[in-house]
Amino acid sequence: MKQTIFFWPERCFQYVFILCFLIAYSGCSTPLSTDKKEPSTTNWDNRFRLNNGMVIDVFIPENYTPDSTYSLLLLNDGENMFGDFSWNMDQILQNLISSGDIRPVIAVAIHSRGKRNNWYIPYNDPWITSNWGPYKPKALNYAQDIFTEVIPFIDEKFSIDTTEVGILGASLGGLISTWMGLNFPEKIKYSAGLSGSLWVADYSIFSEVDGPYNSGQKFWFDIGTNEWNYYIPLYAELDRSGLMPGVQNFYYEVPNGAHFIEDWIQRIDLPLKVFFSTDKNPEPVSLEVVLECIPSQSSPGKYFRRMNPIITLSNQVKYSLAHTASYTLLSGDAELGSEGSFINNPDSEIEILVEYKTFSKTVEIPVGWCK
């Protein structure tokens, strides 16, 4: 008989990787201008300082024409987004556009300028204050500046569809992206958080799901198993709010993923395809099940055993099924969770059937696995 088992990792101190993103960016050596100008041939070096002091870089796709309208993608941590020594998002976007994987978009990288904690954290969190220093949660101010300054500025200079706005970021930048998608569905159609810091303030964002959400709205969020936190409750809450998994609601538990830019770059094409794919109706084409043995961060010798069923769509987007698959114990002794977790006796072999729509996989857990 199936049982629901929720494994919540302890509040741990594995976030040392995040500290490297707390560097303050307080200036910019490139000349800044608010004058109107034609897009440059290098695209991303269109840099502007807005009236409120925000600094943005703008990517314009090749063959841009004002006779067409373009979706707008906002990028957090903008000083790290464009160019060869950063995410190289300008080249990634252009490659995906040129290959026909996504439709042309305009992307705006918003510099954080040393304000990451204030801008990107919506909640008071004593742990952050004690370990990272004092801050003032100004996520609402950041969102309002985007709506009243950034988007109107871009709309004046370039041909964009203001109903087609997405926001993307990683770590704390992923937290604010998800938060804005949840709280401003009338303004943010697409939101993506790669390794988003959803743990802030004891997962307060899980309670922010409060639809209804727009029928075209889409969420992407992910976490690597080498930095694992239990983000499936948000996946389930979005599902319950009416956002269909694999259509509007995408969660990816990345095997062996870590909290590094290199890891995010390797999968950045996935949310971009989810939001802007030229394939309007991608279909599931394959199912794989990855076994995960995740060590506890605070209790030596304790492990979280999980099955991670991953669907690949026809446009090569991958996402985890978690609570949307069904799990049946075929043989052996184990307790199965409704979202892929299980507790078993490692001294015996078990078999579990994983099913989703027309797909099925039999997973064999050998003796001694995850012991």
Score class of each variant (00 low, 15 high):
residue 194 L to V: 07
residue 175 L to K: 11
residue 148 T to M: 11
residue 162 T to L: 00
residue 153 F to K: 14
residue 146 I to T: 04
residue 146 I to C: 05
residue 154 I to V: 11
residue 98 S to N: 14
residue 169 G to D: 08
residue 122 P to M: 05
residue 156 E to T: 15
residue 196 G to M: 13
residue 125 D to M: 11
residue 183 N to C: 06
residue 177 S to F: 13
residue 147 F to D: 08
residue 106 I to F: 00
residue 192 A to I: 04
residue 107 A to S: 10
residue 155 D to E: 15
residue 152 P to K: 09
residue 86 S to F: 13
residue 109 A to I: 09
residue 175 L to Q: 12
residue 96 L to R: 02
residue 139 A to C: 06
residue 110 I to S: 04
residue 90 D to G: 10
residue 179 W to L: 10
residue 191 S to G: 04
residue 142 Y to D: 01
residue 133 G to D: 13
residue 181 G to E: 10
residue 171 S to H: 12
residue 114 G to P: 02
residue 98 S to R: 12
residue 181 G to V: 07
residue 163 T to Y: 01
residue 191 S to D: 06
residue 126 P to Y: 08
residue 129 T to C: 10
residue 110 I to Q: 07
residue 158 F to A: 11
residue 126 P to N: 09
residue 191 S to F: 03
residue 145 D to Q: 12
residue 165 V to P: 05
residue 159 S to Q: 09
residue 118 N to P: 09
residue 161 D to T: 11
residue 194 L to F: 06
residue 152 P to S: 07
residue 140 L to W: 12
residue 146 I to H: 02
residue 139 A to T: 06
residue 118 N to A: 08
residue 110 I to P: 01
residue 146 I to M: 05
residue 98 S to H: 13
residue 104 P to T: 14
residue 180 M to A: 05
residue 133 G to S: 12
residue 104 P to F: 12
residue 173 G to E: 13
residue 116 R to T: 04
residue 195 S to G: 15
residue 102 I to S: 07
residue 192 A to D: 03
residue 142 Y to S: 02
residue 105 V to Q: 00
residue 92 I to L: 11
residue 87 W to P: 01
residue 194 L to Q: 05
residue 155 D to R: 15
residue 180 M to C: 06
residue 162 T to A: 02
residue 163 T to H: 06
residue 172 L to W: 02
residue 175 L to W: 14
residue 162 T to N: 02
residue 105 V to S: 00
